[in-house]
């Protein structure tokens, strides 16, 4: 109960993302592994938080729980003051659509839709009216892909693909942007550019949480949390 009241207390608009005491188990055959062992974290509006950790430390699982893609066995997740954990999938989906943007390391785009159609799809999911062509143009401008609106994902180079993914992730103007290793395959300049975009997101009063092992990213974050063996290191 205390955790819930803490979360409720934080639901004052200042907190974009709040997670308390997350637990998550995995069962593969007979083995049971504990991917998250009581992770608590929060992201304020206007803040950029980086979660770093070696591979296998539970980063991806944490991100999935935070985004409402996975259900933690214990603990709770609030986004913009609304609880997203332990709710029916339909409600989680609505929250994801309205409040959360997810940027994955790869596979951010539907292969048979071009960049603009991908963005439009994400906007439609969030319940936005169609015809916000200027929005799409602005998004594409923002990531420097103005000329590539009609390109299909397989026609884009690695850096372009990442930026297009970012444009899609931002299509619903989310409260919090969750990014999983967003610069993994990018060169320094593109990486810088993506990070700047993330930063400007935070500056616009939204929360940004990046899961990464990249030191550049760590350097740009306001706060760095180290995840090891399913726990946030003190």
């Amino acid at each position: 109960m205390t955790t819930t009241s803490t979360a409720a207390a934080r639901a004052d608009g200042a907190t974009a993302l709040d997670a308390t005491e997350l637990y998550r188990f995995f069962r593969t055959g007979e083995e049971e592994t504990l991917a998250l062992r009581g992770v608590s974290l929060h992201v304020q509006r206007g803040e950029t938080v980086a979660v770093v950790g070696p591979s296998g430390s539970g980063k991806s699982t944490l991100l999935a729980c935070l985004a409402g893609l996975d259900e933690p066995a214990g603990g709770s997740v609030h986004v913009g003051g609304e609880r997203i954990s332990h709710r029916p999938e339909a409600q989680r989906a609505r929250l994801r659509a309205r409040r959360i943007g997810v940027l994955l390391q790869s596979g951010n785009l539907i292969a048979h839709l071009d960049v603009r159609e991908n963005i439009r799809l994400a906007q439609a999911a969030a319940g936005r009216r169609r015809g916000a062509a200027s929005d799409i143009a602005a998004l594409l401008d923002g990531v420097g892909l103005r000329g590539r609106a009609h390109a299909l994902p397989h026609e884009l180079a690695g850096g372009e693909l990442a930026r297009a993914g970012l444009a899609v992730a931002l299509a619903n103007d989310p409260d919090v942007l969750l990014a999983d290793e967003p610069t993994g395959e990018l060169d320094g300049r593109t990486e810088r550019r993506v990070l700047d975009l993330l930063k400007s997101r935070a500056d616009a009063g939204r929360g940004v949480l990046v899961v990464t092992h990249n030191t550049e990213v760590v350097g740009f974050a306001d706060r760095v949390l180290v995840l090891r063996d399913g726990r946030i290191q003190p």
């Binding site: 985004a67 893609l69 999938e89 339909a90 989906a93 609505r94 929250l95 994801r96 659509a97 309205r98 959360i100 997810v102 994955l104 596979g107 951010n108 785009l109 539907i110 292969a111 799809l121 994400a122 999911a125 969030a126 899609v168 619903n172």
Partner: peptide
């Protein structure tokens, strides 16, 4: 396989099951 990937992505983007 591709369909599963696409569905997962769509759900990530917040599309409901019904959609």
């Amino acid at each position: 396989d591709r369909r599963r990937r696409e569905q997962a992505l769509l759900r990530t983007r917040g599309l409901g099951l019904r959609q």
